[in-house]
Design a protein around this nucleic acid. Structure first.
Lengths: 122, 122
DNA sequence: CCGGATCCTCTGCGATACTG
DNA sequence: CAGTATCGCAGAGGATCCGG
């Protein structure tokens, strides 16, 4: 029986990846060439995300160990960079599987023309 | 760029599987021995789910083609049974991967003792 | 009894404005 | 640039009710 035992790793994992925007944020960071992405880059690419939600998700993903945050305070303005950890990189294959499942079964499949959805190596 | 183009299959898929309870409901149906599960069985096993949300998720999953609904009107009271489709069964492997990812990386791993979380073949 | 629907409350997300 | 602060609303939670 699946109770809501909050100490259950599997349940907690399903719960946090089910939060809106979490998976798309991971994808955004993954798709950067250097493996890093700035706050504003993520925000500009996920055009409908609000700054509050983005901040919250980045903190959750950092806490869960999927990303790390690096602050470059050498120049001004200060820049924040987010990077996938080994754990986060390992999770990308799951997102790839979700994409492949969708393209395998869904009718009238379509990937966004103006995204790199089609061209990215997922 | 990942915009919120609503016609994008991948985006739509990520969006609907990110809804709360969707994955756990699929698991519940999968873990039944005959591959079918009644409304009340799902509700009793996912002890914190409310009937409203369960109804809504079952309709969404049916609409998305992952489950089918069968009404057994031969006996009384009438019973509803939900069953995974081929598409739904194919999705279970993704949930398995999520579980394995969690158990591979998370610290202080723990599966709920009083669930079949530990014993199920995921 | 079973499978929901209904009503109300409350958390989480969205939109906009603003600051160090 | 990288976030907070504030407000409003839709969707999730909780309890109860109802038709077959």
């Amino acid at each position: 029986m699946y109770s809501m035992d909050e100490s259950c790793t599997v349940y907690k994992t399903i719960d946090f990846i089910s939060k809106k925007w979490s998976l798309l944020i991971l994808l955004e960071i993954y798709k950067s060439s250097e493996g890093k992405k700035r706050y504003s880059e993520i925000k500009n690419n996920l055009i409908d995300i609000t700054p509050k939600v983005l901040s919250a998700r980045l903190k959750e993903l950092e806490k869960e160990g999927l990303i790390t945050k690096n602050i470059d305070a050498s120049s001004f303005p200060v820049k924040s960079e987010y990077e996938l950890t080994k754990i986060g990189i390992d999770f990308i294959s799951i997102i790839k599987d979700i994409k492949n499942w969708a393209l395998r079964w869904k009718i009238n499949n379509k990937v966004c023309e103006r995204l790199d959805c089609k061209n990215c190596d997922l």
